[in-house]
């Protein structure tokens, strides 16, 4: 049973207010992944490690000069179909939430599983993402 939408709204807005696109349906997930280029996918969740590490880490990383073409998010335990559709794009990876994945032309090129978020501060998570952005994404001209 999905979480109360009102309970998770602030957790969603923490990312969406910073320009991270919410994908809430299968159609939105498929349309996003049909595009070429680089895409950050955040599987957001109600967990404390999402609040303390994943979301603030993503927000810090999105201030870096090199960015993926798209930053997107689905919410575990809330948008069940969208989360399943997103996880199907990285079927070789065990499902966990929160987790972070950077895709290039639909393939996972960098993955941060939940256990690499737990207990880490936002700066460490951001640094991990920034390194991946520098390696796989193209700086805006």
């Amino acid at each position: 049973m999905p979480y109360d939408p009102e309970m998770v709204r602030p957790m969603r807005e923490e990312l969406s207010s910073a320009g991270v696109q919410e994908l809430t349906t299968i159609e939105e997930v498929d349309a996003s992944f049909a595009q070429s280029g680089t895409q950050l996918l955040v599987i957001n969740s109600v967990c404390g490690c999402a609040a303390g590490g994943a979301r603030p880490g993503v927000l810090l990383a999105l201030k870096h000069s090199v960015q993926p073409d798209r930053a997107t998010t689905v919410f575990a335990g809330q948008d069940l179909d969208a989360v399943n559709a997103a996880r199907a794009k990285m079927a070789d990876f065990p499902p966990s939430s929160p987790c972070l994945a950077l895709f290039k032309d639909g393939e996972v090129v960098h993955f941060v599983p939940r256990h690499m978020i737990e207990g880490r501060d936002a700066q460490s998570i951001a640094f991990d993402l920034v390194e991946a952005f520098d390696k796989h994404c193209v700086a805006a001209s």
Binding site: F93, F111, P113, H115
Partner: peptide, 8 residues
């Protein structure tokens, strides 16, 4: 498991 996580 360190790299990818664990399967349930």
């Amino acid at each position: 498991a360190v790299k990818f996580g664990q399967w349930k």
